[in-house]
């Protein structure tokens, strides 16, 4: 028994430290979930999300969501703001990693058959989370207002707009007009920093609560 264990035991004998720990800490995790690295993918996606929130708040303090100012403010972040270039690059890489991790996480769930009864609803929430994550990426792509942003958004809104029946409404709702401009930029900004974060926070809460209640699905 190491010295740390002895100190812990001495304190635990007197203060019942174990009872103070929140229940999640005492909750056992199946051995395969601890040893198999494939079970990390969801956690990696969540870590990326937390990093994105942090770096995103930083970026929002310097970013100006209008077509006239956006490009200059991003240029300012990249060249003048202390650590700005690093923070924006981490935001960029965390976003791509998060999407990849969510997709790989979904593949693990599929091939292990972990979406089956009683976890059907958690799978549905998970697919919604994938949709939200890619929409995050899509809306964030426009914000620097450079050539890549503009034309990639042109393709994206074009594809969404050619869906039958609802396409034209989605396109109008996203762009706020017939072309990408002022309205599009403020809409994408609002979607990216207000609507999607609120939605994803609620759905992540549901996703984790359901795992907590139902446990991690069985072995391979």
């Amino acid at each position: 028994m190491s010295i740390l264990d002895k100190i812990y035991k001495w304190l635990d004998d007197r203060f019942k430290l174990r009872d103070l720990l929140p229940p999640i800490v005492k909750h056992p995790a199946p051995e395969y979930a601890v040893t198999n690295p494939l079970y990390c993918l969801g956690g990696i996606a969540f870590l990326c999300f937390l990093i994105l929130v942090g770096t995103g708040i930083f970026l929002a303090m310097y970013y100006k969501p209008t077509p006239l100012e956006a490009y200059k403010s991003v240029e300012n972040i990249m060249t003048a703001v202390p650590m700005g270039s690093l923070v924006r690059s981490i935001h960029h890489w965390a976003a791509n990693t998060m999407i990849a991790a969510v997709m790989l996480h979904m593949m693990r769930i599929y091939f292990m058959g972990a979406y089956k009864k009683p976890r059907e609803l958690n799978w549905v929430v998970g697919v919604t989370l994938l949709l939200i994550t890619t929409t995050f990426g899509f809306s964030g792509y426009l914000l620097p207002w450079d050539q890549l942003s503009f034309w990639a958004t042109k393709i994206g809104t074009g594809i969404a707009g050619s869906l039958p029946i609802i396409g034209q409404y989605i396109s109008l709702l996203l762009m706020g007009g017939s072309d990408i401009g002022n309205e599009t930029m403020t809409r994408f900004f609002a979607i990216h920093v207000l609507i999607l974060p609120a939605t994803i926070a609620i759905l992540l809460g549901l996703h984790f609560a359901m795992i907590r209640i139902q446990g991690i699905s069985g072995r391979l």
Partner: peptide, 13 residues
């Protein structure tokens, strides 16, 4: 990754 391959910024839209 962020240090080696910083996020790009092309010419203005």
């Amino acid at each position: 990754l962020a240090s080696l391959y910083p996020a790009g910024l092309q010419t203005p839209a």
